[in-house]
């Protein structure tokens, strides 16, 4: 049952060109930064990345964009990234925009074995173009399909050798619904402990969803919008 791999390089073994990957995080909060660094180092290209955001210039998925490793982004919000904008306008990069709740639920559905579901989000907007719509209890809904990927890469605070995960504060975000939405789910954690050390009552994501786990070498945890109030 030992799911531990040595480091990020070993964790992304088998992740090849033109694959689809799901990545957790909201903005730069709770992103799998060690795995992203390993992807940059490996130089895999033609990736389709499913992630709520696309990082910023020089950090997060912005690092993969810089090296032209991403072919397509599937996200809900991609602002704050000049290189992203440049590649999009020049036609180098494809983008599909999805309402945030729909994105989260599509990933959850992928992990949960639910091929499609109905949501009110996007009804009568361009998001619903070409999709089945149906009325339930007097209200219109759009059918959305699950999202699955070759790899799902998430980040947690603590994890154990069985892949059980505990998150800290608002880093749960997309990391939790994305766990299990990849053929292989990789979890990078700040602190890896032997199975039995985490209280089973406190586990957020059970280890069954996780195939490979490692303790990240370094977490920069960059803040995108540092806002403070006077003391």
């Amino acid at each position: 049952m030992n799911k531990v791999v040595k480091n990020a390089d070993e964790a992304i073994q088998g992740l090849e060109d033109n694959m689809t990957i799901i990545l957790g995080g909201f903005g730069l909060c709770g992103i799998p930064e060690n795995s992203i660094a390993a992807l940059v180092k490996k130089g895999v290209k033609g990736l389709t990345c499913i992630s709520n955001n696309a990082g910023v210039d020089g950090f997060g998925l912005g690092l993969l964009l810089q090296q032209h490793q991403i072919k397509k982004m599937i996200s809900s919000y991609v602002g704050e990234n000049a290189e992203f904008e440049r590649q999009l306008l020049s036609g180098e990069l494809e983008v599909e925009l999805i309402p945030q709740g729909t994105l989260a639920e599509r990933c959850r559905a992928g992990a949960a074995g639910i091929p499609a579901f109905f949501t009110p989000a996007g009804y009568a907007t361009e998001v619903a173009d070409g999709k089945e719509v149906r009325e339930f209890h007097g209200k219109m809904y759009v059918m959305e399909h699950w999202l699955k990927a070759d790899f799902a890469i998430i980040k947690a605070w603590k994890g154990d050798t069985h892949g059980n995960l505990i998150f800290r504060k608002t880093t749960r975000n997309f990391n939790m619904p994305m766990a299990g939405a990849g053929k292989i789910t990789i979890a990078e954690v700040e602190e890896l402990v032997p199975a039995g050390e985490l209280d089973p009552d406190q586990i957020h994501t059970p280890g069954i969803f996780v195939k490979r786990i490692f303790q990240g070498e370094k977490f920069e945890k960059r803040i995108e919008q540092r806002t403070v109030r006077p003391k």
């Binding site: 809900s76 919000y77 602002g79 309402p99 945030q100 009110p120 998001v127």
Partner: peptide, 14 residues
């Protein structure tokens, strides 16, 4: 440049 809808479509639909 379209940045995306974020959670706005889910919020207004519900």
């Amino acid at each position: 440049m379209v940045k995306g809808m974020g959670g706005a479509m889910d919020l207004v639909a519900s």
